[in-house]
């Protein structure tokens, strides 16, 4: 009969099965089965089997995929307000970041996805991104002068590197290892687990923990699929997602520590620079958003820093 029919939610991501995001999704599937007494199930497609992040968001809009994890940087093409997360130095600390994500700002930004036929369901931790350089020891922005830095394809990332006086060079992630090795670029930027898992540490002498951006991962669902669930099913799903978010946060922290230990062991010099000159360098860039929606979010986020 119709009531007994199992609800299968198909969920894709671009990372491999060792990544904290995948493990958290597996956890989500278990919790959902538990809450729903086996009525609901999540099938996970890892390793970009169903497309890259942008393509999977389109699949959510189309309705052939139920959920995905996507960087806030990718989703800004669909929900421009999300761009605020890609701006450098908007959070003062990890605690500040989670206070924002769990508070009104985080929820409002998740709600903004509705107009794009999406449902914002929560955030995963993606840590903070920092520079790594093949040959250049960087202590302050001026050490980046004229250096070719690989950035993601995003105008925000380009402008940020320019604010640090580097030359932003967009190169696809797949070509980056070779590009670093052959000197097409002098450095790149990423969070510790990605720096480690991509093996870029093998050819980078310095990892400069300046933590310029903290772009969270967003769990998004297809409005088409989500609206077809009963209220009870939506509730189960939300609870399962909450559980998986808490689980992932823990895994992420462990992963970050392990990654840093491993790259140090491999001979990478990890530099902890004074962040002040970096923060000062991006103030003009922040000012360009004054009076816009993003500017409003920036002010709201700044006001939520209790450590100030």
């Amino acid at each position: 009969g119709g009531e007994q029919q199992k609800v299968v939610l198909r969920m894709g991501h671009t990372l491999d099965t060792e990544h904290s995001v995948h493990k958290a999704m597996v956890h989500m599937a278990e919790r959902l089965q538990h809450y729903s007494n086996g009525e609901m199930d999540v099938v996970i497609y890892p390793s970009a089997q169903l497309g890259n992040e942008r393509e999977m968001v389109e699949l959510l809009q189309i309705g052939s995929l139920a959920m995905t994890k996507v960087s806030a940087a990718t989703i800004e093409g669909f929900v421009p307000e999300m761009k605020v997360f890609s701006l450098p130095y908007i959070f003062q600390s990890r605690e500040h970041r989670w206070r924002v994500l769990n508070g009104d700002v985080g929820q409002n930004l998740l709600n903004e996805t509705q107009k794009a036929h999406l449902v914002g369901l929560g955030y995963y931790d993606a840590g903070s991104r920092s520079f790594y350089m093949t040959d250049t020891r960087v202590k302050e922005p001026k050490d980046l002068t004229g250096k070719k830095i690989r950035v993601m394809e995003s105008q925000t990332a380009v402008k940020m590197v320019q604010a640090f006086s580097g030359a932003a060079t967009p190169i696809s992630f797949g070509e980056l290892y070779a590009a670093l090795q052959q000197g097409v670029v002098d450095g790149a930027e990423n969070n510790p687990p990605s720096f480690y898992l991509s093996r870029h540490y093998e050819i980078s002498k310095y990892y400069i923990l300046n933590e310029h951006t903290s772009v969270p991962d967003v769990i998004v669902g297809s409005a088409h699929v989500y609206n077809n669930l009963t209220e009870q099913q939506q509730l189960w799903l939300k609870k399962a997602i909450q559980d998986s978010v808490e689980y992932q946060k823990q895994l992420w922290l462990e992963g970050e520590l392990q990654a840093l230990a491993e790259v140090k062991k491999a001979g990478v010099e990890v530099i902890y620079p004074d962040k002040t000159p970096f923060i000062n360098a991006v103030q003009d860039f922040h000012a360009t958003f004054k009076g816009t929606r993003i500017g409003q979010y920036l002010e709201q986020i700044a006001s939520m820093n209790e450590g100030k």
């Binding site: 389109e58 093409g77 669909f78 929900v79 421009p80 794009a116 105008q155 967009p170």
Partner: peptide, 21 residues
């Protein structure tokens, strides 16, 4: 057409050029 329609309401922009997908 339904793909184009989805990317026009709301407008989806590309990452680098920021043009309409």
């Amino acid at each position: 057409f339904s793909l184009v329609d989805l990317t026009m309401t709301p407008i989806q922009t590309s990452a680098a050029l920021e043009i309409k997908m």
